[in-house]
Design a protein around this nucleic acid. Structure first.
Ligand code: FES
Ligand code: FES
Lengths: 145, 145
DNA sequence: ACAATAAAAGATATTTTTGTCTTTTATTAT
DNA sequence: ATAATAAAAGACAAAAATATCTTTTATTGT
């Protein structure tokens, strides 16, 4: 479905949202370990989410690390897909045709458009904060073991 | 969603199902042109679908080419995903966790499982022949222009 | 000021995916 | 038999995705 980079981005952001605050920031080691992802590669991804997209916040130096603001927690999960350049899955033709339209629909269009709509709805309505909260509540998990 | 290879595989197979018969086979040039895909790359893909998976049939030499048997037309679209090794999208966790289960569900599991189920249902119930027939009827298209 | 810390930045490596080109083999029509 | 045809097979190339390692910069506590 998504690229490895996007998967790590989603997992990392949700994890940071769950565990961090402006007072308690998280280091890359803890994050990569928690979500079971390659450390340096994850660092690159967090850089993009931080520097280019301001979804994650970060501070260097002692007691530094990554954290999410309350504002960022209100962002929809889709904003992570947008940041990673992986949001076209919510729009494009399942058979890879250049454009998906009612005028020249592909043989799967009629059924697929409803599925894609639900997927888009999921990523547009669920916020990063909501996804994180469910982990805090212990009903869902983000660990890989 | 799918790899380029799988997209070409789906489009090519549906196209062949629509236009070919045991008496009228299709050449790789016509197929690649019709579905707007790189010729040699598509040839490799058709080779896999033919040699390894027997979804497509082929004959070499003059008046040779690719075609689909009636039996193959009854195969579900999912069989193409299986042949291309791209079927795990119908099974795996949307966040890329090693296993998707009710015991340790990810924060998106509850909503996503229903979407994934519909996607799986689509690829399991729609046959290659059905997808091709709709093109023949002129209600849907597989061209890219 | 200084040393320690942790992210940012940059360079490089590996693997996978995508794509092309050439040669070979099977089949058919003449 | 021979030549033409078209897929099969194999080698190779380019691009993108994934991953690692090193150096630099900002920040903080002493
Ligand atoms: S045209 Fe293929 S999904 Fe809409
Ligand atoms: S655990 Fe993530 S979709 Fe089921």
């Amino acid at each position: 479905m998504f690229s490895k980079a996007t998967e790590y981005a989603l997992r990392a952001t949700i994890y940071i949202a769950q565990k961090s605050s402006e007072e308690h920031k998280l280091g890359i080691d803890e994050i990569a370990n928690a979500i079971d992802s390659p450390k340096s590669f994850t660092a690159k991804i967090l850089q993009v989410l931080t520097r280019d997209n301001h979804i994650i916040s970060s501070v260097r130096g002692p007691n530094g690390g990554f954290f999410l603001t309350q504002k960022s927690k209100k962002l929809p999960a889709r904003s992570i897909l947008l940041a990673m350049g992986d949001e076209d899955i919510l729009e494009k033709c399942v058979l890879g045709l250049k454009q998906c339209s009612e005028i020249q629909p592909c043989p799967m269009h009629a059924q697929y458009k409803s599925i894609r709509k639900q997927l888009k709805e999921l990523f547009m309505t669920k916020t990063i904060g909501q996804l994180a909260t469910e982990i805090k509540d212990g009903v869902v998990f983000i660990s890989n073991q």
